[in-house]
């Protein structure tokens, strides 16, 4: 018998497998999403992100493994309706009803009362900036507007877990920014899982991330840990002197690696009481500047994109 899901997990998948005929879409996928987190799911096309979402939401059945949603077993509308919602990828709402009718229907189905649904629909329409199109038929909406209706329906009521598959796909930059801000603001109030190819978006919005490839999780954890923000500072230097010996001496035990090609000095350290990242960075910068180095930039860790691209398991042709 396998170990139970962690008590603070909103979502837990253990050794989940899914085949489409002879194609193995998920191959023993393990994933734990902490409650209250904004969790990013990243991977190349065909990595298994949408299949993972579909199994969590009960649209697809896993061939093997265990899924636990909100600590109550696999998804079941009787237990989870209104508490777990999703924005599916490439799913179309009925085209002949109006936006407000569609949202009202979905709100009522998830158990809201008539008055509560009315208020919720008004709130959601304002959130996705579609109040002026509320009475229009869905067929008259643009792709971006349809996406916003899809996002809106996922936030009807007060769901505990929301799964969003490519939420900003097709939105203009301003709308995408608004949606990202909204998602980030949900941290701590509900659990949100976002699947996206946009690594910058995931890095901006999410506090946890899992990198998936070929149906398995190849790296997972807090974004700060995955990108090295917790224990790594990268200092880029312009042409000029590089006082490595003096800098290493100033770090008192922490390591400093010099990459001549990129002219990046990477400091690796363990934060301790009385010695935070800022203290390490300050000591290194003082030594560098005293030695005549010309500092171009300082960054904690590396971008999620670089982390992703440096994963050895990913063949170059599959990287986004």
């Amino acid at each position: 018998m396998s170990a139970p899901a962690p008590a603070d997990a909103a979502l837990s998948l253990r050794a989940v497998g899914k085949n489409y005929g002879r194609i193995r879409a998920l191959d023993g996928l393990d994933l734990v999403v902490p409650r209250g987190s904004v969790f990013g799911l990243v991977g190349p096309n065909g990595a298994g992100k949408t299949t993972t979402f579909s199994i969590v939401c009960g649209w697809l059945r896993a061939n093997r493994g265990e899924v636990d949603v909100l600590g109550e077993g696999a998804f079941d509308p009787a237990r989870h309706r209104g508490r777990v919602t999703a924005l599916p990828q490439d799913s179309a709402l009925g085209r002949d009803m109006t936006v407000v009718e569609q949202l009202t229907h979905l709100g009522r189905l998830q158990g809201l009362g008539a008055r509560e649904t009315r208020e919720e629909v008004e709130r959601i329409l304002a959130l996705v900036d579609l109040t002026d199109r509320a009475r229009d038929r869905v067929r008259t909406l643009s792709h971006g507007m349809l996406r916003r209706v899809g996002i809106g329906q996922a936030f009807l009521g007060d769901p505990e877990l929301v799964l969003l598959d490519e939420p900003t796909n097709g939105l203009d930059p301003r709308q995408a920014h608004t949606i990202r801000e909204f998602i980030a603001a949900q941290r701590g109030t509900r659990t949100i899982v976002v699947s996206s190819h946009n690594l910058h978006e995931i890095e901006t919005v999410c506090d946890h991330v899992a990198l998936i490839d070929r149906g398995r999780v190849v790296m997972a954890g807090p974004v700060s840990a995955v990108t090295g923000r917790d224990d790594e500072v990268r200092i880029t230097l312009a042409e000029g002197p590089v006082p490595l010996t003096e800098t290493r001496a100033a770090l008192a035990g922490d390591t400093a690696e010099w990459d001549e090609a990129d002219r990046v000095l990477t400091l690796r350290f363990q934060e301790k009481p009385g010695r935070a990242a800022e203290d390490v960075t300050g000591a290194a910068l003082r030594a560098l500047l005293a030695g005549g180095a010309r500092v171009s930039s300082v960054a904690r860790g590396q971008s999620l994109e670089r982390t992703y691209l440096e994963l050895p398991a990913l063949p170059p042709e599959q990287k986004p």
Partner: peptide
């Protein structure tokens, strides 16, 4: 076909 069923399948049996 349109996968519109996925919007309602999370809300009712």
């Amino acid at each position: 076909q349109s996968r519109g069923i996925r919007f309602v399948a999370m809300r009712t049996g």
